[in-house]
């Protein structure tokens, strides 16, 4: 569904991405793990059109997205759940959701959305800043879903969440993959990753350096952890 080919670029003076190539197929959870600072967030920003001057290619079901501004990338069918959640703090939950809805969501009308993320229903009139971390995360996911995405990018959604909320999150991600969404999950939390991912990719120094199915990854975890994940 989503394909990245040789993405390169970064920030002034720092070429963070050194040719990132990966695929996120429909109906699967593709996880990307890697040490701090290897370029996971930068990769997602590059896909969204939020990073100027990117080289390489991003395609969505064969349609080339590279170089488009963020709002057209989103309209093409990519939902973005950013690092740190970034809910609008001074908008209500309901308003946060409306920002993503240029027209009423077809795939995620309210009944379906609140069946998936029940906690949000009672919070509709509360400000984004008043939510707990877990609620903010669910709101960030809901806000991306109502844009009717074919691909969902999530950047460390488990960060700062209690174990029970992480389990809820895992269930939500599996449900979404079951609906046919291509989920691209950036994570540091190996437990969540192993629980939900179909494939696990490891990033180091701005490239994908290793790729394995979830089962294969579990078998080789010690070696992988030692080689690419410990500091």
């Amino acid at each position: 569904m989503l394909a990245l080919r040789g993405l390169a670029g970064g920030y002034r003076g720092a070429r963070v991405l050194q040719g990132v190539t990966l695929d996120a197929p429909a109906g699967q959870v593709t996880a990307v793990i890697g040490r701090n600072g290897v370029g996971k967030t930068t990769t997602l920003r590059a896909v969204m059109g939020l990073l100027p001057g990117v080289e390489g290619e991003v395609t969505l079901a064969g349609e080339r997205l590279t170089g488009r501004p963020p709002h057209l990338v989103a309209r093409a069918g990519i939902g973005y759940v950013p690092e740190g959640r970034q809910v609008f703090p001074d908008l209500t939950v309901e308003e946060n959701l409306r920002v993503g809805q240029r027209r009423p969501s077809r795939q995620w009308p309210p009944e379906r959305l609140f069946a998936l993320l029940p906690n949000l229903r009672e919070r509709l009139r509360n400000l984004g800043r008043a939510l707990s971390g877990g609620e903010q995360q669910m709101l960030a996911i809901a806000r991306a879903l109502v844009t009717d995405p074919r691909v969902l990018l999530l950047d460390e959604p488990s960060q700062g969440l209690a174990p029970m909320v992480v389990r809820e999150l895992a269930a939500v991600l599996r449900r979404l993959a079951g609906e046919g969404v291509a989920v691209l999950l950036v994570e540091q939390n190996l437990r969540l990753t192993e629980a939900v991912a179909d494939r696990i990719l490891i990033m180091a120094k701005g490239q994908v350096v290793h790729e394995a199915s979830a089962a294969a990854f579990a078998a080789e975890e010690e070696a992988v952890r030692h080689r690419w994940l410990t500091m």
């Binding site: 501004p69 989103a74 973005y80 970034q86 993503g100 844009t147």
Partner: peptide, 9 residues
Amino acid sequence: AMTAALGND
């Protein structure tokens, strides 16, 4: 940036 990333010009 987030407003744009949700599809708004």
